[in-house]
Design a protein around this nucleic acid. Structure first.
Lengths: 225, 225
DNA sequence: TAAGTTGTTCAGCACGGGTTCAGGGGGATC
DNA sequence: GATCCCCCTGAACCCGTGCTGAACAACTTA
């Protein structure tokens, strides 16, 4: 975990830095707004502690610029003045948390834990398989970046195959995961869907294993079976 | 945006509820820990305001149980006592923010905005989506800079879609986040709102995914990945 | 009270897409 | 190589989903 501390009081800055290092962070520090802004702009921090009253560039301005430039690390704001209008301005500039001086180090650490915890919860929801990418949350399919239009049942089926790629999935297993209740056994719906999918994403991406089922594979890097 | 307020003081509870409703949230409230825990356990809230001193079940316990059960909505903790050890306990139980009574309503709202923003992975108060910008604070919508007039329900819906843009949002998810408690299942209100929104912001900005739901997209720069 | 907003309901329509069917191809096994 | 069975494919059917216009109800504002 990399942390940046932007605080103009050298004593407090050093004290914070040491506390964070003890807590396991790799810490950089800056003593004014311009330095702080530059560092946050060039290094990928996991969390930033930012004082509002800074020389050269105001803390709110620093934060606003970062956000405009697309930096989205969590930022915790510090200020000596307990004016709630400033807090509101800080939050609306894109701050994630706020602490009024003086504060207990334990509280700062606890808040930072909360910040990094939540920031780490962002998981990408796309499954990759040799140029084929499946956005499970957006229900979209791309093949080498180009969008492919699939219907909801086709998507469910492809998504299930992708979750278990390189494994053979039986027809009944597919049916059970696509349909809620049971379903007419002697029907060739699954085959029809496989056919339609193959037409859309390429014939060689779904292998059929006679008598067993289907398997989603990466067509170029064919594994030695 | 659905919010839950768990606060045993009936006056404060009502006051908070009204303030949040004015700010555009659909609010449920609970007056003790057990009720609060149950509601948070069964309904998909976007943010929760939780008092620590509660009858029947302590606030920290409520929060710990939610986290154990996998509820990951952002939680803002309230307490009358300004003891930082309690704050630390609250954070480590999984709280995302903390506010000491008494507080300014504006500060609470700013913190809640920051929480919901962060939960959705955004860091600014306005959400952009290909020429469409949504001011979550002022409840305004602009398209290429020109203001678009939307009603409050339309705004809630668009706002929720924008918080989760590129994701497919089911009709029930929309209903659950726009209306407080349950709601007539077989009603086509959502479709009507989608239709009206499309008429205002452009047909191609809200895609319908048959059988799954709706998705807010940038109509020109179709994302690649 | 009248006029204007805003939210909800209803009915009709269009069409997408899931399902079915019939027929043909091609492994597998002997 | 013959036979069987599994699988593929194209097309047609038809039901359900979603869209739309309009009317109605609830509520605000003049």
């Amino acid at each position: 975990m990399r942390a940046l501390v932007v605080e103009d009081d050298p004593d407090l800055n050093r004290q914070l830095g040491r506390a964070l290092e003890d807590a396991g962070y790799a810490v950089d520090s800056a003593l004014d707004g311009e330095d702080g802004h530059f560092m946050g702009d060039t290094e990928p921090y996991d969390v930033v502690v930012l004082d509002l009253g800074l020389p050269k560039m105001d803390g709110v301005t620093v934060l606003e610029r970062w956000r405009q430039e697309g930096r989205d690390f969590p930022v915790l704001i510090l200020t000596a003045r307990d004016r709630w209008s400033e807090k509101v301005a800080g939050f609306d500039a894109g701050a994630d948390d706020y602490l009024t001086k003086p504060f207990h180090t334990e509280e700062l650490l606890a808040r930072m834990r909360a910040l990094t915890r939540r920031a780490a919860g962002h998981t990408t929801a796309t499954i990759e398989c040799g140029g084929l990418s499946i956005d499970t949350r957006g229900a979209r399919v791309f093949i080498d970046g180009a969008p492919v239009k699939v219907t909801s049942h086709e998507f469910r089926m492809l998504s299930y195959l992708a979750h278990h790629q390189d494994r053979v999935i039986s027809r009944t297993e597919l049916v059970e995961h696509i349909y809620d209740q049971d379903f007419d056994r002697d029907s060739n719906t699954i085959e029809v869907f496989v056919g339609r999918l193959r037409k859309k994403i390429g014939t060689d991406r779904i292998e059929t294993v006679r008598g067993l089922g289907y398997r989603l594979v990466d067509p170029v890097a064919r594994p030695v079976s």
